[in-house]
Design a protein around this nucleic acid. Structure first.
Lengths: 263, 263
DNA sequence: TGGCTTTTTGACAAATTGTCAATTTTGACA
DNA sequence: TGTCAAAATTGACAATTTGTCAAAAAGCCA
C-alpha cells in the first residue's frame, strides 16, 4: 500500500511508453496494425512483459479510448463555463466537439474505433467502466444546459419529450456528422464540403425547431464562435499535456496512491 | 463471353454460400471471427479455393456491404414513391432507415463495419465502387425530395446553405442516431430509451427549424407513419429475398450474363 | 550476504494468412 | 468415346501473431 516506488515508477513509465507507441500505429493502420509482438520488439522487451501491462491489444485500445473520453469531458466542462446563457453554453459544447476532432484527432479516432470492432467484449471491465462513467458525464454536461434552458423558460419541452432526447439529437448530429465527415468517401463526391459549417447550422436549426430561445442569429452566432473557439482550442492543448493516463484522476479520490513528495 | 455455364454455375452458387456463411459469423464475432481458414474447413474446400473467390476476408465483408447498400437504396427508392408531398417523402425515407435497421440488421451492422476498421484499404476497387455508387444514389434520392420542396416553395434555403447540407444533417441525425443506439452502452444508462421516437422528433425539429412547410404535426405524422411503415417493412422483406449478390443488377445493363433459360 | 518477492524472459502450442507449383477436373472437339 | 489444353482445386510452405507459463533474473529488505 505505502509503496513510494523505486521500480514501480519504471513500470508506470513503461505503461505510458506503450500507450505512446500504440497511438501512431493505430492512427495509421487501425487495430490490425497493432500487435503485442511488434510493441515488444520495438521496446526491446519480451512479449510477456507487455502482457504484464495489458491482457491484450484490445485493452490497450480501450485504455487510450478511456483517456480520450476523459479529455473530452474536461473540454466539455471547460466549454460550459464560457457562458451563462443556456443556448450559448450548448453552442460552446458543440464547438468543443469540433475542436476535439481537430486538436485530438487520435483520440477522436480511437473513440469511434472501440465502439465497433471486437474490442469492447475483449477488454477489461475496469477500463470499460472508466470510459462509460466519463461518457455519462459528458451527456450530463449537455443535459445541464438543456435543463437550465427549461428553467429560465428559454425552452419548453414538447409533449412526451425529454431532456435526454435533445441530448441524443445533438449528439447524433455532431458526433454522427463528424464521423461521417471522417469516414464517408461519398460525402466529398456528393458536394458536401464544409461539413463543419453544415453541422453548426443543422444543430441550430434543430434547436430553433424546438423553439429554443433566443432563435439562431447567424452573425451573432459566428461572432460568438470566433470569440470562444480559440479559447477552447488552447484549453484542448493544455488538456492533452495534462491528461496522459486513464488512471490518474480516477485514483485521486482515494488519494494514497499519489505520493505528495515522490522519490 | 457466351458461357451459359455448366460449372460456372456451381462457382457462382459457391460464392453465395460463402457469403451466407459469413453473415452469421460476422454478426456474432465481427470481422475478427471470420477467417478464410474456417470458411474453407466448414465448406470442405481447400483454402485456395476460397481465395479464388475473394482475395481476403475484408473483401468478403465489402461484398456484403455492397449488397447491403444496394438493398438500402432499393428501399429508399420505394419509400420515395409513397407520397408526392416533399416533406412526406423525406419522412418516408426516414422510416425506411428505421425499417432497414430493424429488418436487415446484418446489413446495417456490416455497413457500419466497413466504414471503420482496416477493411476499406484492403478491399478491391471494384466492390468499393459499387458501394460508393449506391451510397451516392441514396444521397441523391434524399436530395431529390429536398429539391422538390424548394421548387414547390415549401422550403427556402438559408443564405449560404445547400441541399447537400440538409441531406447531411438528416443523415447524421438518423444514421448517427441508429449507430449510437446500436453501439453506445451509455445511452440506455442515461435514460434514452426510445431512440426511434427521439430520432423522428429530432428530424422533424430540424426541418421545422429550417422552416420547411408544412410544419410538424404530431398526430398527422404518426398517422402517416402507421400507414406507410408496414408497407416499407414488407417491401424490405421482398428486397432481402430479391437482392442476394452485389453483382446481379450491376451486370444487368450488359445483359448477356444472365441466361434466359438456364441448364 | 542471504533469502524472499516481484518481474522478466522466451520457448511453446495453436491459429491464421497469403502463395504457388503440382494435381485434378472440365468441357470442347474430333 | 478419346484426347488435351484450359480452368479449377489442392494442400504444403513460410510468416505472423496470440496467449501461457515455468524457469531465470532482478529487486528489495534486513
Amino acid at each position: 500500500m505505502k509503496t513510494p516506488t523505486p521500480k514501480q515508477l519504471e513500470i508506470r513509465t513503461r505503461e505510458q511508453r506503450i500507450l505512446s507507441l500504440a497511438v501512431p500505429i493505430i492512427r495509421e493502420g487501425g487495430l490490425t496494425a497493432l500487435s503485442m509482438d511488434s510493441i515488444a520488439r520495438e521496446m526491446r522487451y519480451a512479449r510477456g512483459t507487455i502482457y504484464n501491462h495489458f491482457p491484450n491489444k484490445e485493452d490497450i485500445a480501450l485504455s487510450l479510448a478511456a483517456r480520450a473520453v476523459r479529455r473530452r469531458l474536461m473540454l466539455f466542462e471547460y466549454s460550459a463555463t464560457l457562458s451563462t446563457q443556456p443556448r450559448e453554453r450548448i453552442a460552446a459544447i458543440g464547438i468543443a466537439c469540433e475542436v476535439y476532432a481537430d486538436r485530438m484527432p487520435d483520440d477522436f479516432q480511437i473513440e469511434q474505433m472501440v465502439r465497433h470492432d471486437t474490442i469492447w467484449p475483449k477488454s477489461s471491465t475496469g477500463r470499460r467502466d472508466v470510459l462509460l462513467k466519463c461518457e455519462g458525464q459528458c451527456i450530463l454536461q449537455v443535459g445541464f444546459s438543456i435543463q437550465a434552458a427549461i428553467e429560465t423558460g428559454d425552452l419548453v419541452l414538447p409533449r412526451g419529450g425529454s431532456v435526454e432526447d435533445i441530448v441524443f439529437g445533438l449528439w447524433s448530429l455532431v458526433y454522427g456528422g463528424l464521423v461521417l465527415e471522417a469516414t464517408s468517401p461519398s460525402l466529398a463526391s456528393s458536394g458536401i464540403m464544409q461539413a463543419r459549417v453544415a453541422i453548426r447550422r443543422n444543430c441550430n436549426a434543430m434547436l430553433d425547431g424546438l423553439g429554443w430561445q433566443p432563435l439562431y442569429d447567424a452573425s451573432k452566432y459566428s461572432r460568438y464562435v470566433r470569440r470562444i473557439r480559440p479559447k477552447i482550442a488552447s484549453k484542448a492543448d493544455e488538456i492533452v499535456i495534462e491528461i496522459q493516463s486513464d488512471q490518474e484522476l480516477i485514483t485521486t479520490e482515494n488519494d494514497e496512491s499519489y505520493p505528495a513528495s515522490g522519490q
